[in-house]
C-alpha cells in the first residue's frame, strides 16, 4: 500500500486529570504519580501529557514530595 502524503494533524490533547475531575493531586497517590513520570523517573512534560497548567503544577509538587518520602523513585533502579 502506498503511503499517503498527508501531514499529520495533531490531535488536541485534553488534561486527563480534568476529565477525571481530580480536585487535588495528592503526594500519597503513588499510583497516579507513577503515571505522571517517565520510565526514568522524570516528570512527564506538559507538551507530552497535555495536562492543564493547574494540574501540571499540582503533579509537579506532588511528585517532588513523594520522591522525598521514597514513595516514588528519583531515578529508576535499572538506570542507576
Amino acid at each position: 500500500m502506498p503511503k499517503k502524503k498527508t501531514a499529520r494533524v495533531p490531535r488536541r490533547k485534553v488534561c486527563k486529570l480534568c476529565l477525571d475531575r481530580v480536585e487535588r493531586v495528592d503526594y500519597k497517590d503513588e499510583k497516579r504519580l507513577m503515571r505522571a513520570i517517565t520510565d526514568r523517573g522524570k516528570i512527564v512534560p506538559r507538551r507530552i501529557s497535555g495536562n492543564c497548567s493547574r494540574h501540571q503544577a499540582q503533579i509537579t509538587r506532588a511528585v517532588k514530595r513523594a520522591r522525598a518520602l521514597a514513595l516514588i523513585p528519583f531515578v529508576n533502579d535499572s538506570y542507576r
Binding site: 495528592d26 500519597k28 497517590d29 503513588e30 499510583k31 507513577m34 503515571r35 517517565t38 520510565d39 526514568r40 529508576n76 533502579d77 535499572s78 538506570y79
Partner: peptide, 21 residues
C-alpha cells in the same frame, strides 16, 4: 484521599518501569 488508602507494599507500578528497562 483517605490517608490510609495506600500503605502496605505496593510494587505494582514496577511493571511500568520494567517496560522501559
Amino acid at each position: 484521599h483517605p490517608p490510609e488508602h495506600r500503605g502496605r507494599d505496593r510494587r505494582t507500578e514496577r511493571s511500568h518501569f520494567r517496560r522501559g528497562g
